[in-house]
Design a binder for these strands. Structure first.
Lengths: 129, 129
DNA sequence: AAATTAATTGCAATTTTGTTGCATTAAAAT
DNA sequence: ATTTTAATGCAACAAAATTGCAATTAATTT
């Protein structure tokens, strides 16, 4: 297998994701690292960071794909997506509510890999306005 | 408001969705109604069917948008997405498990509109091979 | 410190997916 | 049969993501 390298662009992308309080889309990330690298490179960095278990890939209720840092995931465990995502229909932001864990049981014929509970609605800051 | 009409294309699309045991993507639907209508028309029909509460719009774990028939939804109630979706990572199909209802409570500052619980993994038929 | 290896990047081209405007067609009501 | 307007086809457009390949550069080796 290949040995990952640490590049300026990769660090910048990871940094933006980790600093953000909510999950970012590829365009948002590209905006924030303006000038550092190409649009295509952002796509490839995101793929790699997901493969390396450094970030989460979350799908919004509208199908938009967003990326979030891992607070409670340990790299050595790999990822467990068994927590709740809140997807705001007003500001379109999506955030992880890591405290809320989910437990579901299905028939044995289903092999469960990951759980994605996404709740859509209005987030606290949008509720104020 | 506008009065919906029943066209051959609309009926064909709805039929394919209802006959399928799992949720279909726009390309899959377009394939199955080959020759009946234009690609653009399928998009517009799907939008309309969703608006008319005839079908579900479901987002797959990979961000793909799929459409499923409504078994347990009543048109007069509108739609409630409070059940479980199983999204197979092998065949990419997604199905509704309507028996499994979900209940979650969040802080009052979050206004909940819909719940989307998607479980990814291997579906029963892919498990066989 | 220089050379080597292969992971990473930039750029251009392409593909896929979804949208819009507008003239034409056809479903349903009169 | 006529009228109304929802629905369609087509062409053009726009957005989002992918691919190939040559050039670059991080990290390792000598």
């Amino acid at each position: 297998m290949s040995t990952p390298r640490n590049t300026k662009a990769k660090q910048a992308v990871l940094n933006e994701i980790n600093l953000s309080g909510y999950a970012l889309s590829q365009p948002e990330i590209f905006d924030r690292v303006q000038g550092i690298c190409d649009r295509v490179t952002v796509y490839r960095i995101l793929d790699r960071l997901v493969r390396e278990n450094k970030i989460h890939k979350i799908v919004n209720i509208d199908g938009t794909i967003n990326y979030a840092g891992c607070n409670s995931c340990h790299e050595d465990h790999g990822h467990t997506h068994d927590h709740l995502h809140f997807s705001c229909i007003r500001c379109k932001k999506i955030e992880c509510l890591e405290e809320q864990l989910i437990q579901v049981s299905l028939p044995d014929s289903y092999q469960i890999k990951e759980l994605f509970l996404t709740i859509s609605g209005i987030c606290p800051s949008c509720s104020l306005t």
